[in-house]
Amino acid sequence: MRTEMQRESGAVTPLELFFDLVFVFALTGVTAFMAEDLTWRGMLRGMLIFGLLWWSWVCYSWVGDVARADEGVTRPALFAAMAVMFVLALSIPESFDDLPGGLHGPVVVAVCYFLFRGVHLVLFWIISADDPGLRGQLLRFAPSMLVATTLLLVAAGTEGPTQTALWAAALVADYLGNYLGGARGWRLRSAGHFAERHGLILIVALGESVVAVGVGVAKLPISLPIVATAVLGLILSATLWWSYFDVTALAAERAFAATPDTDRPRLARDAYSYLHLPMVAGVVLLALGLKKVLAYVGDPVHHDLAEPLKGVGLTALVGGLTLYLLGHAGFTWRVLHVVNVRHAVPVVALLSMLGIGPHIPALATLAVLTAAMAGLVAFETTRFAEDRHRIRHEH
């Protein structure tokens, strides 16, 4: 059955938004996974799980730009993929260590990943019935997925550092294999649709950071420190939203749309599929850091208000913001060919908090980071007011 091709002006469909809800749950699961094992190993493994989820989502972001997600065979295929991803998300706590009873968690994760990617390949094969170039791209695309799945299955039978290394190798195989496979066969019908889809998944991640704050205090009596932490966390998330959606997303989408059709797939792969990865990963780490700050200020029995944020919690908070800014700078450079040196100053300031944070209260660390990001947003908004007005209001 053929699917209706996406028009150049195509907008994100309600089914795609529904599809993304599964990833809201999955991202929440990644944050919870790292919070349960607040060690360097736990954070590394959490990021590996996130990398698996991100690449799974990326594959389907291309589907919706070639064929309408709510028409033809695409609709049931997306529902099938949602079911598989939901099972994978449920299995996140057992991604590395199987719990007694039931199915073997690591194997379930590997099988779900294979099925999720398999549905994507079959769907694209159907869509590309009259497009030899796209089918050729799929043939170059498939081996990396098979290698990655094989490594995950092998990892399921191991433990410790070997298991973690095999997971890392699986992701390297998938990400690098896809990059080396090129982009000449991919098709993009609507630059606006593709850019909007990635903007929406970033909002999903930012929403997860807000959810992390809410879940973190759900069972705690409300207090002034909790209120302060919640407000600062929301402001911090808002600054990340502002830095991307106020001007950058608009300018990037227009530049993306103006890119010749022959060059557009490569730009889409680099700027959106790859360079949005550090931004979304940064937000996930930020959610973990906020969750840890709330644990410090909201539990006076086990923590003192003057207790500093240290170790993994501090690294997640500072590292998440730094990773986001670096990803944002890379995205701006790739699409707009602008080197955003203004982000270098806050990055240095943020990294300095790794040395200062262990000596000041956790809430003070959050306040300093929030002030730094708010200052960056305020500076860019006022310093480039004319350019901002032009970009936001030109048609």
Rank of each mutant, 00 (worst) to 15 (best):
L285M: 15
T262R: 15
V318K: 06
L305N: 03
H303G: 04
K291N: 14
P265L: 03
A258M: 07
K292H: 14
D263Q: 15
P260F: 00
Y296V: 13
E253P: 09
G298W: 04
T315F: 14
P260S: 09
P308L: 00
V283T: 03
K291R: 15
T262M: 10
D299V: 06
R254L: 08
G282Y: 00
V280T: 10
M279K: 10
G282L: 01
G311F: 06
G298Y: 02
V301W: 13
P260Y: 02
K292V: 12
G320Y: 01
D261S: 11
L323Q: 09
L317V: 10
D263K: 14
D299E: 10
A249N: 07
S273T: 15
V312N: 08
G289H: 04
R264P: 07
A271K: 13
M279R: 10
P300V: 07
Y296R: 11
A295H: 12
E253S: 13
H302D: 08
L314E: 07
H302R: 12
V297P: 02
M279I: 07
A271D: 00
L294E: 13
A257S: 09
R264M: 05
L317P: 08
D299I: 04
V318R: 09
V293E: 11
G298I: 00
A295T: 14
G311D: 10
A295N: 13
Y296C: 07
T262Y: 06
L275W: 14
A257K: 03
L290C: 11
K292Q: 13
A306C: 00
A287E: 02
M279P: 00
P260Q: 10
H276L: 03
A271V: 05
A258F: 02
A258H: 04
A257R: 07
V297N: 04
L309D: 02
A251P: 04
L294M: 14
V283A: 01
V301H: 11
A268F: 08
H302P: 06
R269K: 14
S273F: 15
L314H: 08
A268E: 05
V297D: 02
H302L: 11
P278S: 12
